[in-house]
Simulated scan of single mutants.
Amino acid sequence: MAWILVAPVLIIRLLTSLYPMIMTVVYSLLDYNLIHQTKEFVGLNNFKQMLSDFSLHTTLSFTFIFTLISIILHIVIGVALGLLLNVQFRGKKFLRSIVLIPWALPVIVAGIASTWMFNKDYGMVNDLLFRLVGIKLDWLVAPFSARIAVILTDVWKSAPFFSILILSGLQSIEHEVYESARIDGASKWKTFWYITIPHILRLIVVLTIFFSLWRLTTFELIYAMTQGGPGNATSLLSYIIYTETFKNLNLGYASSISVVLCLFMVIIALLGYTVIKRLRY
């Protein structure tokens, strides 16, 4: 009876999740190109092509850089902001509300707004830089500065949500634990390092896993801000998959990149699960 009751949900999940994954793996083994009207079995040729695709190598390196730096900034800013929001002060509820405004914005809106903010001539960021140090940068024209702009926008957009989740973990710590540490003469730094961090470490690891997976699949921000440019400097794997699928109509090659992206996500999830199992709290 139990299986009969859950069968409709299982069937829906199989059709909407498992079937597309299986077909993606199948297509990755085909030379499936709608422009050339080909659909032939080529084995691992698509994956071999990836080894010699230098534009894809650039995309892979930036995907790694984007995910790593973004996650580090999410952790640092998220924990710091979570600690600030956990302090008792007047206007705390109002501050918690406005902190979530960037996260509540649609990613496309945030991306388009960021192109204006980083504009060389009338952007808010350059205006601030000019007032402080007297310089203006062509943020979205030079590869290095475009990458910085994309990463900063991503952190501005998602770090507030990360901090709210950290705040929920901070509020689960019993106040008596801090009182005992204060009576024993522990400094604020030792209290933070030996009480706060161990209690929220599991939460940080879990959030790191999920936010890393979300960073790997980031598409809308790149689409709205840079279209992968200048050149291929800010292109991520998800954007390359979109380009190969809907612009080049090369479904076989796009599927092979999707398989590689899925493998990266599985590796991150397994590493995170291993770390979680070893944590004491």
Results as ranks from 00 to 15, higher is better:
Pro198Lys: 01
Glu176Cys: 04
Trp3Ala: 14
Val177Lys: 15
Phe219Val: 07
Leu73Trp: 00
Lys247Tyr: 08
His74Asn: 10
His199Ala: 14
Arg202Pro: 10
Phe64Tyr: 07
Ile101Phe: 13
Gln88Glu: 14
Leu249Asn: 11
Ile22Glu: 00
Ile197Phe: 08
Thr226His: 01
Leu129Gly: 09
Gly169Val: 05
Leu263Val: 15
Arg90Thr: 06
Phe47Ser: 10
Asp184Met: 08
Pro143Ala: 06
Ala113Met: 15
Tyr194Glu: 14
Leu83Ser: 10
Ile164Ala: 05
Asn45Val: 04
Val150Asp: 06
Phe47Pro: 03
Val87Leu: 12
Met21His: 07
Val266His: 05
Tyr242Ile: 04
Phe94Lys: 13
Thr59Cys: 12
Met124Lys: 11
Asp53Lys: 13
Lys120Ile: 03
Gln49Cys: 04
Gln49Asp: 14
Thr191Pro: 04
Glu40Arg: 15
Tyr239Met: 10
Ile135Thr: 13
Gly231Pro: 14
Arg90Tyr: 01
Ser256His: 09
Ala186Leu: 08
Ser158Arg: 12
Leu152Trp: 02
Leu15Arg: 07
Ile101Val: 15
Asn46Tyr: 04
Ser255Asn: 12
Ala254Leu: 09
Tyr242His: 12
Trp189Lys: 13
Val76His: 05
Pro160His: 02
Gly272Phe: 01
Ala181His: 02
Leu137His: 08
Lys188Cys: 03
Val125Ile: 14
Asn33Gln: 11
Val205Arg: 01
Gly252Ala: 07
Arg202Phe: 04
Leu15Ala: 15
Leu95Lys: 10
Ile183Arg: 09
Leu100His: 04
Gln49Leu: 14
Thr38Met: 06
Val109Ala: 12
His36Trp: 04
Leu15Lys: 05
Leu213Glu: 02
Ile173Trp: 03
Ala224Glu: 03
Ser212Ile: 02
Thr208Glu: 01
Val109Glu: 02
Arg280Ile: 05
Tyr253Ser: 05
Asp184Thr: 06
Pro20Val: 05
Leu207Gly: 02
Glu220Arg: 10
Thr245Pro: 12
Pro8Cys: 09
Leu237Asp: 08
Pro198Leu: 00
Gly228Glu: 03
Glu176Met: 13
Phe54Met: 14
Pro8Glu: 04
His36Lys: 15
Leu203Ala: 07
Tyr194Gln: 15
Gly134Met: 10
Leu270Arg: 14
Phe47Glu: 07
Ile195Arg: 09
Asp154Val: 00
Thr115Asn: 00
Pro160Met: 02
Leu30Val: 00
Asn126Tyr: 01
Arg215Gly: 02
Gly111Met: 03
Leu129Ser: 09
Ile4Asn: 13
Leu105Trp: 03
Leu236Glu: 05
Leu137Ile: 13
Ser172Asp: 11
Gly111Leu: 06
Lys190Thr: 11
Ala149His: 07
Leu34Ala: 13
Ile108Cys: 09
Tyr194Ile: 05
Ile12Glu: 02
Ser168Trp: 00
Glu176Val: 06
Val26Ile: 13
Ile35Gln: 13
Ile65Pro: 01
Lys188Pro: 12
Ile197Met: 14
Leu34Tyr: 03
Pro160Thr: 01
Arg131Phe: 08
Tyr178Met: 14
Lys277Pro: 10
